[in-house]
């Protein structure tokens, strides 16, 4: 591992404690990474030694997740002005239709008025999505065009991130402290104020296979989760150690 590339867009990877060991949490918002500004690089925050093979697996999984997300997002927000125009036309059509139904009140029109949103809402939502996601789409297209994940891993040096990770481990290191996922979730949410870690523990607690897995390093049981309804993805790669 080495210092980060000065132009690199850092993807933070944290080795965090779990109920049976430790796990790698990738706390990155892929839609904020700008491939034009520089290549991507993983910045690792860990107090445990990580072998080169483990780093290579993390890198490969992050690359898969990053570019799969870019492919999914690349079509969004393209030609958003034209999409907005189509959306406005859609609103015009539905407006004229509702005015007509209102002015010519008949029992059958009530049915049409109630059913109209089912037909017209998707078009309006498409237009809204194209406008709202135009930056995310542009960044995803840039990722596909010029994005590259560097083959080297940097040592994470961000003070705030280091402090959060240290506080989380300090909680685990306290004697007589039971180490279960929901306690860790609570610690991450209230003591450390780290929402990504709190979501990570909640997801781990609800994942049946992860809960069943015994200790040692369950390296890289890769899962990709989205942050609820928010557009940013929370990607984490789980690993366990003794």
């Amino acid at each position: 591992m080495q210092d980060s590339d000065p132009n690199a867009q850092l993807i933070d990877a944290f080795v965090v404690p779990t109920d049976t060991g430790s796990a790698v949490l990738i706390d990155a918002d892929y839609e904020r990474l700008d491939a034009v500004a520089g290549p991507f690089q993983i910045a690792l925050y860990s107090r445990l030694p990580i072998s080169m093979g483990e780093l290579a697996v993390i890198r490969s999984r992050v690359e898969a997740d990053l570019f799969a997300h870019a492919v999914r997002t690349a079509t969004e927000g393209r030609r958003w002005l034209l999409a907005l125009l189509v959306g406005l036309l859609e609103l015009g059509v539905v407006g004229v239709l509702l005015a007509y139904l209102f002015l010519n009140r008949e029992p059958v029109h009530a049915v049409v008025a109630w059913a109209a949103p089912l037909g017209f809402l998707p078009g309006v939502l498409q237009a809204w999505r194209a406008v709202a996601r135009r930056r995310a789409g542009a960044r995803a297209r840039a990722t596909l065009e010029v994005g590259e994940l560097l083959a080297t891993t940097a040592v994470g040096r961000d003070g705030e991130s280091l402090a959060r990770l240290r506080d989380l481990w300090r909680f685990v290191d306290r004697p007589n402290e039971p180490r279960d996922l929901m306690r860790l979730e609570r610690a991450a949410r209230i003591r450390v104020r780290w929402p990504a870690a709190a979501r990570f523990y909640r997801a781990l607690a609800t994942a049946p296979d992860a809960a069943r897995a015994p200790g040692r390093r369950a390296w890289l049981r890769a899962r990709t989760r989205r942050r609820g309804a928010a557009p940013q993805p929370l990607t984490y790669l789980e690993t366990r150690s003794q």
Partner: peptide, 28 residues
């Protein structure tokens, strides 16, 4: 091959051809 390989190679056709090389890490 690691399971991430399939996802990386599925995304490859959408990427620029300059990145179509393989850097394979043998995990041993």
């Amino acid at each position: 091959a690691d399971r991430s390989t399939a996802a990386i190679l599925q995304a490859a056709p959408a990427r620029s051809p300059q990145f179509w090389g393989w850097r394979i890490a043998l995990i041993q």
